[in-house]
Amino acid sequence: MSVVSDAQIEQIREFNRFYTHLLGLLNEGLFKSQYNLMEARIIYELGEVEHLVASQLGQMLSVDAGYLSRVLNKLVKAGIISRMPNSQDKRQSLLSLSAVGEVARVDLRQRSIEQTAQLYNDIDPSQSNKLVTAMAKIQTIIAPQNTAPKTYILREPEVGDLAYIAHRQSVLYELEYGFGNAYEAVISQVVADYIDDYDAKLEKCWIAECDDKIVGSIFCVNGGDGVAKLRLLYVDPMARGMGLGGRLIDEVVKFARKKHYQKIEFWTVDCLDAALHLYQKIGFEHVSSQPYGDFGSHLNDGAGINRQDWQMIL
């Protein structure tokens, strides 16, 4: 039996109709181009992965083989797609974009960007952040296995990165937990102190990036007396489920050991369940708890949240 009520189903169907109409997905030409939705998707996928066979393309698009064959034949005749012999399976040709097809792909991408900008440029920036986060949540809830970026890199922070981290984490934790401006003040101060007092020999910040977007970060700060402070672990919703949080914490532990710190300390709050699980799994010990109302007094039906202190002896 479905856990979704009839009223919720109708609301979902109404949103689907609204968004389909908004994007013009049923128009004869997608983005006012000469290609319909299926043709545009095929051009996009062949631009992402060169030399696919029809069966692979059908699986990626979840489309009937007969219908796909007709669309492919049309695009081949139009000179958009090239067919090449497949040495591994002579029954299926290798498909790729021709030079004309590559031009079409670039044009479709630009049209998509322009349409998206036109649709959302008039939205207030604070609302657009909420919108994008909500879209990421929809992806994560409906198909979590498909939403995490495949690869990421860790790098040093560049100018503007730390301000972005403070902004993004403030917005995210307001949306997910309702922490408000008090939390923004806390992390902004952490970032400002790091910039003002940065010691390159004993401190470090890691930025996680995927597809030119910041998707995570963490800091290791000198707390004095042989203590390293772990600060501001952040993993964007679109990067969750790929092991990034654990990797960032591991980097802090390795760095602290390399710099001969005696222990790592940090504090957090008890509603961040996923992060708490990671800390415990990696070997941190929960030391103490106490009520903390600075940005969570309204949570848990007014009961608030608790501050937790953790440490790892190195």
Rank of each mutant, 00 (worst) to 15 (best):
V3P: 06
Q8G: 00
F15G: 00
Y19S: 11
T20P: 10
L22N: 05
G24S: 06
E28Q: 02
N36D: 06
M38F: 14
A40Q: 02
I42E: 09
I42R: 01
E48G: 09
M60Q: 10
V63D: 13
D64N: 14
D64I: 09
A65E: 04
L68C: 15
S69F: 09
R70I: 07
R70E: 02
L75G: 10
L75R: 14
A78L: 09
I80C: 15
I80Q: 03
D89E: 08
R91Q: 06
S93D: 05
E102F: 04
A104P: 04
I113R: 02
D124E: 12
N129G: 04
K130V: 13
T133N: 10
M135L: 03
I142Y: 02
R155L: 08
P157I: 00
V159L: 15
G160P: 15
L175I: 14
E176M: 04
E176V: 01
Y177C: 12
Y183V: 07
Q189P: 00
Q189V: 06
Q189S: 10
V191P: 08
Y194N: 10
D196T: 10
K201W: 04
L202W: 07
L202F: 03
D211Y: 05
F219Y: 14
C220L: 10
C220H: 09
C220W: 03
K229M: 01
Y234C: 13
E251N: 08
E251A: 15
F255G: 13
K259G: 01
E265T: 00
E265N: 05
T268Q: 04
T268V: 03
I282G: 09
F284H: 13
S289G: 09
Y292R: 06
H298V: 03
L299K: 11
N306M: 10
N306I: 08
Q308N: 06
W310F: 08
Q311C: 01
Q311Y: 07
L314T: 02
